[in-house]
Write a protein that binds this DNA or RNA. Structure first.
Lengths: 230, 230
DNA sequence: CAAAGATAGTGTATTTTTTACACTATACAA
DNA sequence: TTGTATAGTGTAAAAAATACACTATCTTTG
């Protein structure tokens, strides 16, 4: 039923309107040590890797159809043999010795869609800023870094990332999102020029409400953006 | 010793000075049907995925230290259940029913380094032009397409691909290589301008010999090219 | 040894893209 | 009415990409 050799791990990015966060889970380790990890699970016999990742996210958040992007397979035999991980493996895995190859995915979530709560998965689930991610189980730090690198790469070429925003958003929110992902400030005028020219968004006849300053126009994602090669 | 659930498959690109080729293997199927496939193998317990791919290439070509780049994990449960593949699986795999997830790599070879010959691997090993690749076993056509897409992507950003050329080469050879990989013609002057500006190559004090026209200057790869982000 | 054949090698003008930069407009609150 | 906070806008300069055609040099052949 469960394949003992193959797992998926998910790097779930969330955006709270300000900074970019990643979803971490806390597992109670034997001896009360705190163990942080990315959500992941062994793959079932009759599901594809993509489906396995969807399932992990569903079990974790209750959300379906989350945007997912594969970002690498990690298969060093030693990735599940670090001393820091032995106790946990022995407590929770049927076959603690098994060689496990993991396929990593990153997922994008609107923060508004998910307020972390404990699940079947873990003692605790919480958002953590992508800067200064703490030490994680197994090779999850390497997986996280690669996911962020690939997210940035995708972002440069496609209008990916709107999955992190509400349906209607202002250009300033979009800019803040880009700044959070790239970790650098962008010029307002140049940013808008580019977004408009590439037709990533469409203006709505609607404005922001309940703000204490000039309300900004709202936009929505243009589902028909021409897909750039590469 | 062998992990029954995880394999690696290699898309080996070779360049013969003219067109881009991929290495295919021909397996004698039961009933004399011809089966074409990418070289690949199940992963051993004590080797990493990368090492497994290196081993496959070594068994196939005798070459060590070949440039390899991971280009995706393929794990649909049905990828090893197509009727066209059943007979072969039953003849050659200890456990023909096993769910096999494969991790794909692409490799780059100088044609001069490898003249295909049969190996332990297959009845026959041969170069095939990357255009109009025939029907392959399992999901190998999808793996091939993805590998080519990712090779092109890499090529646009890094000075990858010189692994396909001899150590000393002319700018025209380099241009022909780029044209073969992208499948489109490039402007000679603009191509040279760009290559020189980005310092991908260094000029040598040496010229081509034995050609029936003005001999071209030879160049070598600049190992110290600044690595672009992304 | 002259001419033909073949590819090497080179520069400039035009267009497009990217970058840098600062002020006015509008809504709400006090 | 004024203050405060963010929205929204244009232009000039620099850099990068594109289009384009002729001369140079080597070998072979007549």
């Amino acid at each position: 039923m469960v394949n003992p050799n193959v797992s998926v791990d998910c790097v779930v990015f969330g955006f709270d309107g300000d900074g970019l966060n990643v979803l971490l889970i806390e597992q109670k380790d034997v001896g009360q040590r705190i163990r942080l990890a990315l959500p992941g699970d062994l793959v079932l016999d009759e599901e594809s890797l993509h489906e396995a990742a969807q399932r992990v996210l569903w079990e974790l958040t209750g959300l379906e159809g989350v945007y997912l992007h594969q970002c690498g397979a990690f298969g060093d035999p030693n990735r599940v043999r670090d001393v820091k991980d032995l106790a946990w493996l022995q407590s929770y895995r049927e076959n603690p010795q098994a060689r496990v190859i993991t396929v990593a995915y990153f997922a994008l979530l609107k923060s508004e869609d998910f307020n972390p709560h404990a699940s079947s998965f873990a003692e605790r689930v919480f958002w953590h800023p992508v800067y200064q991610v703490p030490e994680l189980a197994f090779d999850h730090n390497a997986i996280f870094s690669q996911a962020l690198r690939i997210l940035r790469k995708e972002m440069r070429h496609r209008q990916v990332g709107h999955e992190l925003l509400p349906e209607k958003f202002t250009l300033s929110q979009l800019q803040t999102l880009h700044e959070a992902i790239f970790g650098e400030m962008l010029d307002k005028r140049n940013f808008r020029k580019k977004i408009i020219k590439e037709m990533w968004v469409l203006p709505l006849e609607e404005k922001q409400k309940g703000v204490v300053h000039k309300p900004a126009r709202l936009y929505e994602i243009n589902a028909n953006t021409p897909v750039l090669e590469e």
